[in-house]
Amino acid sequence: MTPGPLAYFLVAAFGIGAVVSGWLVFRTDSMLRAAYWLMVSFVAVGAMLVVLDAQFLGLILILMMSGEMTIMAIFMIMFMMNPAGLNPMTMVHQHRTSIIAGVGSFLVLAWVGVVAEFPNRPAPLEDPTIALGEELLGRSMLVFESAGVALLAVMIGAIALAAKQGRFGDAFEGSEEPDMDVASGDRT
């Protein structure tokens, strides 16, 4: 279908929200805020997917990210020396290169997006969730199953890496704080 003005407005609003919150992830000092700004970015993209008639995918994206971002916040609070950002800090390296790379990739991709001609074959109006279900458990079942097997392998691998009695030491060793200076690291 041809998008109406409401769809344009919603996409633009959520798009600006997604970009700004994505930017704030790296601008805030509080680790909790960083993690949840990223979640806001995902929720905005999920809302855009809902506007684009991919209701199921958008909601699944939001559903997945709410759990993942809380885990992320917990890990960031665990591993950062100043998680609440009570003192301002910058923990960046190769800053100039990164900015150039980021802006460069944006310009190139946006240029491609604006200049290139894409075929205009919009999705039909009926509920795409049914089509997705039939695809997942029909033609592309092997892909779906492979994703499941990969996730199982990852679960086993992650437990092997991080388990309490794992190869990389006892869990209680991790309860010490990291040392503050960068140079003296790598002491093995």
């Binding site: 949840y36 979640m39 209701q55 199921f56 909601l59 939001i62 559903l63 709410s66 759990g67 969730t129």
Partner: peptide, 22 residues
Amino acid sequence: DIPAGLVLFGAAMLIVLVAVYI
């Protein structure tokens, strides 16, 4: 009555975790 209403409900209920954690 929206087509993927159950998923909307599930997503909202899991974000409760975020609200409580904050």
